[in-house]
Each structure stands twice: as C-alpha cells, then as structure tokens.
Simulated scan of single mutants.
Amino acid sequence: MDSATLQHRANSQLAATDATTLLAEALKPGATYPQVTHALEALLAVAEKGLEGDKSAFAQYQALLLQLHVPGEPRTEPTRRWMASQVYLVEDEFAPDLPAFAALPVEEFRKKVDAEIEARSRVTHPMSLHLFQGTPSQQDVRFFLEHHWTRSYNFYSLLAELAFRFEAIEDASVFYRNLYGEAGAEAPDRSHPALLSHLMTHFDIPLNIDFPRLQPLEKAYLNNRIRCVRHPDVAWGLALLYAVESVSCVNHRRIYELLQRMGVPEQPSEFHRLHGTQDEIDTEEMWELIAKFAPDEAFQRKFMQSLARHFAINKAYFDGLWQEMQELSDHRA
C-alpha cells in the first residue's frame, strides 16, 4: 500500500474522530453556535466522503446521522433536526441518476411504479426464501424478528412526520387516518407497536434497541426512511411510504404463515395476521394522494429517485443481514 493511500486513510479516520467528538460537544445543552457549526462542517465533510465511496466514512456518517435522528435530550431537538436537514442537502447532491427517465401519464406512472416495486420485492431475496420456503432454525427466525422490530416498532412516527409536510388537511388526513389505526384507534393497548411487542416477548427479544451497535447498512436504512419523510419535497416521503405499504400485506402474511408453521400462539402472531389484510386500504388512499401530484414531471423524477435509493439501500441491508444470519448459523454449528 503506497504512502498516499495510507495518508488518505489516516486523514479520513482523523476527520471521522473529529466529527464524533465535535458532535458530542455540539449536542450538549448550552453549546454555542460556533460549536454547532464547527461540528456540522466536520459531519458534512465525512458524509460527502462516505457518499463518494469511502466505506469507513460512510459508516461514520450514518452513525452520526442516526444519533441526530434518535430522540435524545429535548433541549437539543431543534439543533439535531437542523443539522440533519443539512446532511440531507449533501445527500440530495448524490441522488440516483435516472438516465432513462421520462414523465408519464398518471395511470402509466402507477404501472411503472408498481412494476418497479414488484421487481425489487424482498420475496425473492435469498434470506426470504430461506425463511418462508425453507427450514429456518429457531435462532434464524429470532434473528430476523429482532431486526424486524428495529424496522417496525416506530413506523407510526414516519406517518406523523410526513403528515406535517402537507398544508392541506385533506392531504394530511391520509396519514392521520393511517396513524389512528397504528395507535390502536380507541384502544392504545391495541396499538401496532404494542401488538408487535408481544411477539418480541415470545421470542425473548429485548424491546430496547441498542442503536450504536447496529451495522452501518441498517443505520443507513433507518436514516433514509427518516430523511425521506422529513424531506421538504413530499415526493421523497410519498415514494418511501408507498413502497413500504404496497408490499406490507404480502410480507406480513408470509411472516404470519411462518409463525403458524412454528406453532407460535395467536396472541403473539396477531400483529402479522392483521397486517396481512388491512394495509391494502392504506395503499390505495396513499396512491390517490400521489396521483394529485403525479402530473408534475419534477415530482415523478424525485419519486423515482426516492424509490431507487430505497431499493439500493434495502438490498444492501438485507444482503448484510443474510450474511450475518449464515455466519451465526455456521458458528452455532
């Protein structure tokens, strides 16, 4: 390895360390404006390197961005949101290229979107085939559900964030109706996080998530979801949530069938039994809202960019989980 490469790595590691230290100081109550801006400059430099392909910088910036996203000291909430919004601007500069993009009539646009979602479905991923068509061990299923909890426990917060992006109440109400169901309607103990927690308890999975220990691609997956629903351009959030909701029924139905084969009782399985049918209504309501904006060419482009980024991160993330699951199985063997 030549000296230039070694120096580059040393500089990258130093920048990452500086960003971590500076951010920790900037997020203390009472931090000064110069401290905050200095930390932000360091964070943006690391984010840019990460998005340019530096794996170490990528892991570092995703960890720091997740630190801004995860609820923390209430007095630093405005600072954390502002700093995160500046990271989004850097990420916008690396939005996926769409060389074959062409705006379409709304009906044709939906066909294209649905075809893209179907083609990128997790159903055909090797980990999904192992879990839902193979003979996974109890440990494999527990591993999958642990990460499923990380992805699913606070889905309601994504709905709330995106609802705030819409000025018209009739547009925002699409997400408020969905949120009402997520919250258990008139019975908070029937909220979806509460129902899903029963399954985690059944498998002895801790409900508290250790965010720092998550792998970089899982952090990237979580960060991208939050970024999309907070983005000032609603195309990003609509694409992300439509992609998630439109495959929700199939994914949850397969998990429910897996739990049935394993003999898991009905109460812990109820979350997935319910989601195996009801999300189709939410999907159709969301598309009606998307259709209001879809005649705009810029909206369609950003919508497709959001889908492309979501699927790229999603595949890399699931590839990483699949590799880790196999390594853990080999170790136990």
Rank of each mutant, 00 (worst) to 15 (best):
Asn224Gly: 05
Ala59Arg: 10
Ser85Met: 07
Glu257His: 11
Phe318Asp: 03
Trp149Glu: 09
Ala333Cys: 08
Phe164His: 12
Ser197Trp: 10
Pro78Glu: 03
Ser12Ala: 15
Cys249Asn: 14
Ser248Met: 08
Leu51Tyr: 15
Tyr156Arg: 10
Ser56Thr: 10
Glu297Met: 04
Lys111Arg: 15
Glu266Met: 13
Leu195Pro: 03
Ile255Cys: 05
Arg254Val: 07
Leu258Met: 05
Ala31Gln: 01
Ser85Lys: 06
Leu6Ser: 14
Trp322Lys: 04
Gln62Leu: 08
Pro136Asp: 04
Arg110His: 14
Arg9Cys: 08
Glu270Pro: 02
Tyr61Ile: 01
Gln67Asp: 12
Pro96Thr: 02
Pro34Cys: 08
His192Val: 10
Pro216Ser: 03
Leu6Val: 15
His130Asp: 12
Glu186Pro: 01
Glu297Thr: 14
Asp140Trp: 10
Val46Ala: 09
Glu118Asp: 15
Val113Gln: 06
Phe101Pro: 09
Ser12Phe: 01
Ala235Leu: 11
Leu104Asn: 11
Val70Trp: 02
Phe175Val: 04
Lys55Ile: 08
Leu159Ala: 07
Val113Cys: 03
Leu64Met: 12
His231Arg: 07
Arg230Met: 11
Gln13Arg: 14
His8Ile: 09
Leu43Gly: 03
Gln215Pro: 08
Gln215Ile: 08
His130Phe: 14
Ile205Lys: 00
Leu196Met: 15
